[in-house]
Nucleic acid binder design. Structure first.
Lengths: 228, 228
DNA sequence: CTATGAACTATTGTCTACAATAGATAGTCG
DNA sequence: CGACTATCTATTGTAGACAATAGTTCATAG
């Protein structure tokens, strides 16, 4: 609304988006070195903007950079998945506490639209699009809090979660259950949000999250799965 | 024109550290434009590494960059302070839930040392050093969780909080109370952590945080102060 | 045959220079 | 006298080249 889309995106943003897409699409293998010269040829840009884009991705947690040794696609361990999931849960909890009951009713529309698309994807059994719509749904719930830093942090965590999925480290929760049951849980979530009961939403989210923690019990932090 | 020789690690990191220090020390005013050429002269480096450093600081939330209009020191509103404080609380809560009871007893030493230094600073009435020691104390509590992403996110929030203090937007909590009472609250916190009672720690933290929210009631999100 | 060292290569780190754009200023027209 | 426009300047965006370093390979000596 207030955002003006006339801004010509800089090469840095375009390069960051392109590399991010490549990583999340699995076109770049885990731990693969990112040779700057190769990427400049591939993207048709020069090294300075590319290097700035790599700094952005490094801060986002998608790549790791070691001095004089270049950048590599992030390698995710079970510990990393655990960290991503717990952090996501903590951020979602804050968002619910701040955003429910809803103070910006117009923002609910985004969630409702995303949910409608999720149902459509479930009917069509389009799992890829369903995951995308699911992320939009969650992001729109976060936006209810009206908390810019929270939205940014959540987006970063979501991206890393996408990376987990590209690595097949996190496929269980989203793929190994009935699609309509999956969408139904989200519908329940939205209804509780609309009802304005934060505690109930948090309880539902806890059920949501418990499944994801169940396979990480080898980690020292597994105790927290119950608490969250 | 202090020509400092930046060498070994990486000019990007050194430049980022230097500019970060300048911002947090208040040497750069709120909203002040960061002219790249000026900074290159001041730091004795060239523009490419400087620009990469600015990207890092942008991701950290200390500066804002608009395309073709350069970078500015972040301007903090009450809403920003609210966001920083709520995010910090959410991260601390996760850290306590994951780290208490303590599973890495050796890491408690850092907290104990920081607390001892806090007491020393309180005796000497050195408020500046007390704040620094306080941040080390909190950071060491976060480290109990053994959660790298959490530590990084918390460090970023802490930095922005330091920026708040440099802007006198947040001086109340740390400066307008008795120093020994301040340290005493932290001692209580550590004792509860050592006792292994997460709920009690969270309750104490809630008291800790309530004071900071009290001046932000004009914000729409003030309702959360009680919940957190 | 193995181990060690030196030279080489591939890659990153940094710098100078050029192009493009947004903001400012002054001049002119209504 | 005020407002609008064109030019102008300061600053950012981008490019290509040079310097420095870590990893590798080959040669030689034990």
């Amino acid at each position: 609304m207030t955002e003006q889309r006339l801004r010509s995106p800089s090469l840095v943003q375009l390069a960051a988006d392109a590399i991010r897409r490549m990583i999340l699409a699995g076109e770049l293998a885990e731990g693969e070195r990112l040779i700057e010269e190769r990427l400049t040829e591939q993207l048709g840009i020069s090294r300075p903007p590319l290097r700035e884009a790599l700094r952005v991705l490094e801060q986002e947690g998608l790549i790791v950079t070691r001095p004089r040794r270049g950048s590599m696609v992030a390698t995710l361990t079970d510990q990393d998945v655990f960290e991503i999931l717990t952090l996501r849960t903590a951020l979602e909890r804050l968002a619910i506490e701040l955003g429910v009951p809803v103070r910006f009713p117009d923002r609910l529309k985004d969630a409702q639209e995303a949910l409608a698309e999720m149902e459509h994807c479930a009917d069509a059994e389009d799992r890829g699009s369903l995951v995308q719509a699911g992320y939009r749904f969650h992001a729109s719930l976060i936006a209810l809090a009206g908390h810019r830093r929270l939205e940014e942090a959540y987006a970063s965590v979501q991206q890393q979660l996408l990376l987990c999925m590209a690595r097949n480290l996190y496929a269980r929760e989203h793929f190994y259950e009935d699609l309509h049951e999956h969408v139904g849980r989200h519908r329940t979530l939205l209804e509780l949000v609309e009802a304005g009961d934060p505690a109930a939403v948090l309880a539902e989210l806890a059920v949501h999250g418990e499944r994801s923690f169940s396979d990480l019990q080898s980690n020292a932090g597994n105790r927290s799965a119950r608490d969250l």
